[in-house]
Amino acid sequence: MEIRTAFHKALREIQDEVVVMGNMVEKALLRSVTSLKERDLKLAREVIEGDLKINEKRYAIEDKCIQLIATQQPMAGDLRAIIGLLNIITEIERIGDHAEGIAKIAVLNGDEPPVKPLIDIPRMADLVVDMLHRSLDALITRDADLAKEIADRDDRVDELYDQVFDELLELMTKDPSIITRATRLIWATHNLERSADRVTNICERIVYMVTGTMEETNISNY
């Protein structure tokens, strides 16, 4: 019994680290979009540098998971929980990379005026960050229903993606001189869309951790 308690304490500590890492990525995403919107190069460079810390965090967590498996040899649900966390940090780290990608676009854009006011892109970022935040809520509370509900909100992000894509395409058709800058914005939007997909992956993992069954919650168009 004592061993079980020690195991669950260690598991919870790792899970808390995962939540910390999740918040690091939440902030990275918000900051990357702010840097893009406000042409804040200093902030963009901070996000790019910050991604190193996120990657380090990921490896640190991975290491702890492996050590826990090696020393405690968990079975069934416990093993599923650790493997679940290992998968989740991979997804979170990739979202961090998407944030870095957006920040790099902000650096590329430099001080150039935007091709259009950035309204829908920050809105997309807010949606993705909210999804990520709540998916970690679902992880903490082991709430499979919440996880499924979050995954369903991916549609809203896809809608915004289509909207921005069409809008930018139209602008480019009208004025070919903005093609470079508009294409960069499409990249940024794509990064956000991919991030949302990765959140749905996280949600699927949480459902698996809780119920033991793998469910494809959302078939994305992209």
Binding site: R12, D16, V19, V20, M21, G22, N23, M24, E26, K27, H133, L136, I140
Partner: peptide, 13 residues
């Protein structure tokens, strides 16, 4: 509860 589970902010942690 651990700080990060309630106040979901890594910088505060």
């Amino acid at each position: 509860r651990p700080m990060i589970e309630s106040v979901r902010d890594y910088e505060l942690t």
